[in-house]
Simulated scan of single mutants.
Amino acid sequence: MRYLLSLLFCLLAGVAHAAPVGKAYMSIIIDDLGQSSERDSRTLALPGPVTMAIMPDTPHATDFARQAHKAGRTVILHMPMDPATGPYAWHPDIAIEELARRLDAALAKVPYAAGLNNHMGSRMTAQREPMAWLMGELQRRHLFFVDSRTSAATVAAAEAQAVGLAHVSRDVFLDDVRTPEAIAGQLRLGVEQARKQGSAVLIGHPYPQTLDVLAREIPRLRAQGIELVSLRQMIAERGNQAMPGHGHKGRYTHARQLANP
């Protein structure tokens, strides 16, 4: 009897310490940074490897990029694209030479940028030729790309995939509805997505409600089986493959392709 009890204890202990079947990863990006020192500082104080997406046409862009880099955070350029406006914004009727000049100027304003994601861009990211040029240029500069997916018609990630550029696509927007309850609900959706597909990329903004929810909930992610990781680790985890919500069998599709299979 003692032997049987001992054997049962060993079996139960083995089950208790067995490795999980699969890990669930999450990355969080905060857009629109560089506008407010107070909100920038609150974002930088969030726990974990939260990515700082800094707009070039903001008063604190350069200083905050340096501050975030010094703090060990990943900095990316939050590049304005049509329908966004301003001196750096990309529009479909602009020649590649001018797009290149604006990209150079924007990167100069956001030092230490490891990559780029689009600010707005619902029209611009649907333009295949400039998106193909951008992905080749980012490849040349050893920068990665994040498709914010502001439109179902985006071809940006597909063009990144075509040239083998390191990239990921956004899965969940946190704060389209700017209430703590809605933001917490979107974060729960991100957790569910991460568990279902192995990873989730979330994008939010430095709204007080968003920062309050994230400051409270990020330390609780691990207890929910979620590991918060840097964008570089997320890119490595996904291996440039499209998630089910972005395409089919790892390849990207968009609205027109889905309508005409």
Rank of each mutant, 00 (worst) to 15 (best):
Ser169Asn: 03
Ala18Gln: 11
Pro219Thr: 07
Ala84Ile: 02
Arg170Met: 00
Met243His: 09
Pro244Leu: 06
Asp40Asn: 15
Arg216Lys: 15
Ala65Val: 05
Gln209Met: 03
Thr210His: 07
Ala89Pro: 11
Tyr252Leu: 02
Ile76Cys: 05
Gln209Pro: 03
Ser199Asp: 10
Ala16Thr: 08
Glu137Gln: 13
Val177Leu: 12
Thr74Ala: 10
Arg140Met: 04
Leu116Thr: 05
Arg195Ile: 04
Glu38Phe: 10
Gly34Asn: 09
Pro20Gly: 07
Met234His: 03
Lys109Pro: 01
Val213Ala: 09
Ser36His: 14
Ser169Asp: 14
Tyr25Met: 06
Asp93Glu: 14
Ala24Cys: 12
Ala108Phe: 00
Met234Pro: 03
Ile76Asn: 07
Ala113Met: 04
Ala16Ser: 14
Pro59Asn: 11
Leu174Phe: 05
Val21Arg: 11
Arg2Phe: 15
Gly121Thr: 03
Ala255Gln: 15
Arg251Val: 09
Pro244Cys: 07
Pro83Ile: 06
Arg232Trp: 01
Ile94Glu: 13
Pro92Asn: 10
Leu44Trp: 07
Gly48Gln: 09
Tyr252Pro: 03
Gly204His: 05
Ala194Tyr: 05
Gly22Pro: 01
Thr150Asp: 08
Arg66Leu: 09
Val168Asn: 02
Leu165Lys: 02
Asp93Val: 01
Asn260Glu: 14
Ala68Gly: 06
His205Glu: 10
Arg238Asp: 04
Leu221Asp: 13
Ala255Ser: 14
Val21Asp: 14
Ala68Asp: 13
Met120Lys: 10
Gly164Lys: 01
Ala45His: 04
Leu8Arg: 01
Ile226Glu: 12
Leu77Asp: 11
Arg188Glu: 15
Tyr112Asp: 14
His69Leu: 02
His69Trp: 13
Ala236Ser: 12
Ala95Arg: 12
Ala100Arg: 12
Ala114Glu: 14
Ala242Gly: 08
Gln197Arg: 02
Ala223Leu: 08
Gly136Pro: 01
Pro244Met: 08
Val50Ile: 13
Pro180Thr: 08
Ala95Val: 09
Ala45Asn: 11
Trp133Gln: 02
Glu38Leu: 13
